[in-house]
């Protein structure tokens, strides 16, 4: 894993994922370690993503590393028309590692092929966001004590939600029982279901949210975006069907935890926030430890 890029969650085996999660546990106990002294890590955000960028930069600085880079492409030579190829090659000559976020799908894979230093994909358009996936897996394992044989329910936009796709692909390595709740128009694509079938696992699909709540160990909520519906009337019909309210959790298991990649809009009612089953804010914090584990592993210092 040393010096190897992480572009897609598919790049890691089950054992490699577990190794990162184990190491993240160590960093959770001791996040301040000077193991990146003198190292320069580039943080290239070709599109703004404050949450992801601050999580990465916090992770690096707590380990004593230095950050160079930019928070949006507007002030860089990209706005003068420089190609991604040239930008990456230039930065790779300064930095020991590149973290990049880019609106174009496949840009991180391409960057990993032209860069002389490893790339961590911090999101490439609607394609992949593997560190979000790792932090979700970390949160699931931390709250359930295991990743194996869990009933995991995904709710909302399962068609376009990239975090859902990466999580399903990763969880297929852990004998998960999948439950998918979405409007018909936003069902999980068959290209993703392929991974479940290849792992000989089962899944169920629902349009009704209520019936699946008592079965779930994890409820992973996502936002349904208005722009996904060509007909605004269709959106109006479904927009409230997949909103989680506190009272809906009355018959849920004690161990169930609610996850959400954030930002939330209205798909989780604020009355859920005080429920101990709500885990989405702690989930975001776990991102720092997972990113520390990943960076330390790729840099070969752990």
């Amino acid at each position: 894993m040393k010096n190897r890029s992480l572009v897609s969650i598919n790049d890691y085996s089950k054992e490699e994922i577990i190794r990162i999660l184990d190491l993240a546990e160590e960093f959770e106990k001791q996040p301040h370690q000077h193991i990146l002294d003198g190292r320069v890590i580039a943080s290239l955000f070709f599109e703004p993503s404050t949450r992801t960028r601050l999580s990465f930069e916090t992770a690096i600085q707590q380990l004593g590393g230095n950050v160079i880079g930019f928070a949006s492409a507007a002030s860089t030579s990209v706005s003068k028309g420089e190609s991604l190829n040239d930008t990456i090659r230039m930065v790779a000559s300064y930095a020991d590692l590149i973290v990049m976020r880019h609106p174009v799908e496949g840009s991180a894979r391409f960057a990993s092929e032209v860069s002389r230093v490893p790339i961590i994909n911090a999101g490439d358009g609607a394609n992949q966001h593997p560190t979000q996936c790792l932090l979700d897996l970390y949160s699931i394992r931390k709250t359930q004590g295991t990743l194996d044989n869990l009933n995991v329910t995904f709710v909302g936009d399962l068609k376009y939600g990239r975090t859902v796709h990466s999580n399903v692909i990763a969880l297929s390595k852990f004998k998960t029982k999948f439950h998918f709740v979405s409007p018909i128009e936003l069902k999980l694509p068959s290209a993703v279901k392929r991974y479940i079938k290849e792992a000989h696992l089962s899944y169920e699909q629902y349009t009704d949210f209520m019936e699946v709540i008592p079965k779930s160990d994890i409820i992973y909520m996502t936002r349904i975006q208005r722009e996904r519906f060509p007909d605004p009337l269709e959106y109006e019909k479904v927009k409230n069907a997949y909103v989680l309210e506190n009272a809906m959790l009355d018959n849920s298991k004690d161990n169930v935890r609610i996850l959400h990649p954030l930002p939330r809009v209205n798909e989780i009612s604020t009355d859920v926030d005080a429920n101990p089953k709500a885990y989405y804010f702690q989930q975001a914090l776990n991102g720092v430890f997972v990113r520390q584990a990943l960076i330390a592993t790729i840099m070969g210092v752990k």
């Binding site: 190609s83 174009v104 391409f110």
Partner: peptide, 9 residues
């Protein structure tokens, strides 16, 4: 929105 349609790849 694939990189192959945006850059010389």
């Amino acid at each position: 929105n694939c990189v192959t349609n945006m850059e010389a790849v």
